[in-house]
Amino acid sequence: MTYRVRIENADGEVVTIEISADELREKGLTLEELLPPNARIVEVEEVEP
């Protein structure tokens, strides 16, 4: 499974990243732990691999 994640950074700019569930598991991280300081998740969407 892959996630498309929209993130708002500290400057108010919204960027989109895609990350797979396998990648998260391998790194032992959650989506929140990948965020840079002062950023927030705006939207998470599951996409087909």
Score class of each variant (00 low, 15 high):
4 R>T: 02
26 E>Y: 11
38 N>K: 04
32 E>D: 08
45 E>N: 07
6 R>Q: 08
27 K>R: 07
14 V>M: 13
7 I>K: 00
24 L>K: 01
31 L>D: 00
44 V>F: 06
13 E>L: 12
28 G>N: 12
34 L>D: 01
38 N>F: 12
40 R>C: 10
5 V>M: 05
15 V>E: 12
24 L>C: 03
31 L>R: 00
15 V>H: 12
16 T>Y: 07
44 V>D: 01
7 I>D: 00
34 L>H: 04
6 R>C: 04
43 E>C: 12
25 R>I: 13
29 L>G: 07
8 E>W: 07
10 A>R: 08
40 R>Y: 13
32 E>R: 08
47 V>M: 09
16 T>L: 10
18 E>N: 10
16 T>V: 12
11 D>Q: 11
9 N>E: 06
28 G>E: 05
39 A>N: 08
15 V>S: 14
22 D>H: 11
3 Y>M: 04
13 E>S: 15
25 R>Q: 07
30 T>H: 05
28 G>D: 06
3 Y>N: 00
31 L>N: 00
29 L>P: 03
26 E>G: 08
30 T>E: 06
11 D>M: 11
43 E>H: 14
31 L>Q: 00
10 A>Q: 12
13 E>M: 12
26 E>L: 13
3 Y>E: 00
2 T>H: 14
47 V>Q: 05
37 P>W: 08
42 V>I: 15
33 E>R: 03
4 R>I: 09
28 G>A: 05
24 L>N: 01
44 V>P: 01
27 K>E: 04
37 P>S: 08
34 L>R: 03
17 I>D: 00
36 P>C: 01
43 E>Q: 11
38 N>Q: 06
7 I>G: 01
32 E>W: 10
27 K>N: 09
7 I>E: 00
9 N>C: 09
19 I>M: 02
46 E>T: 14
20 S>N: 10
16 T>Q: 08
24 L>G: 01
17 I>W: 12
13 E>W: 09
39 A>M: 10
34 L>N: 02
4 R>S: 03
15 V>N: 08
2 T>V: 15
19 I>N: 00
10 A>V: 12
8 E>P: 00
12 G>L: 04
42 V>T: 04
28 G>I: 03
43 E>L: 13
17 I>Y: 10
15 V>D: 07
2 T>G: 07
32 E>G: 07
15 V>I: 13
49 P>V: 14
3 Y>F: 10
38 N>Y: 14
38 N>R: 04
12 G>R: 03
1 M>Q: 07
30 T>D: 04
24 L>S: 01
48 E>Y: 15
42 V>A: 02
17 I>V: 09
49 P>H: 14
29 L>I: 12
45 E>S: 09
48 E>I: 14
35 L>N: 01
47 V>H: 06
37 P>C: 05
7 I>P: 00
41 I>V: 11
12 G>E: 02
6 R>H: 14
20 S>L: 07
47 V>R: 05
11 D>S: 11
46 E>N: 06
20 S>P: 08
20 S>A: 10
18 E>V: 15
38 N>P: 06
40 R>A: 05
30 T>I: 05
4 R>W: 04
17 I>N: 00
32 E>H: 08
26 E>Q: 13
18 E>T: 12
23 E>N: 05
29 L>M: 13
35 L>W: 02
33 E>V: 03
40 R>F: 14
23 E>P: 01
48 E>F: 15
49 P>K: 10
8 E>R: 07
10 A>F: 12
49 P>S: 14
40 R>D: 03
17 I>S: 01
22 D>Q: 13
19 I>Q: 01
24 L>F: 03
36 P>S: 05
47 V>C: 05
10 A>G: 11
28 G>R: 06
20 S>Y: 07
47 V>I: 15
4 R>E: 01
30 T>K: 09
16 T>S: 08
9 N>G: 10
18 E>P: 01
1 M>V: 13
19 I>F: 11
3 Y>S: 00
37 P>K: 08
38 N>I: 01
40 R>G: 04
34 L>T: 04
27 K>L: 08
35 L>K: 02
34 L>E: 01
49 P>W: 14
13 E>I: 13
5 V>W: 01
49 P>N: 13
32 E>T: 09
24 L>H: 01
6 R>W: 14
34 L>F: 15
14 V>R: 09
1 M>F: 12
11 D>R: 09
8 E>K: 06
7 I>L: 09
47 V>F: 13
12 G>Y: 03
3 Y>K: 01
31 L>I: 12
27 K>Q: 08
37 P>D: 12
15 V>Q: 13
49 P>D: 13
36 P>L: 04
36 P>R: 02
41 I>L: 07
30 T>A: 07
23 E>C: 08
2 T>R: 11
12 G>Q: 03
24 L>E: 00
5 V>Q: 00
10 A>D: 12
1 M>T: 13
3 Y>Q: 01
21 A>K: 09
26 E>W: 10
5 V>R: 00
23 E>M: 12
6 R>S: 10
41 I>E: 01
16 T>K: 03
21 A>G: 09
30 T>S: 10
33 E>N: 07
25 R>T: 10
26 E>S: 10
45 E>Q: 12
5 V>S: 00
31 L>E: 00
16 T>M: 10
13 E>D: 11
46 E>Y: 14
6 R>V: 14
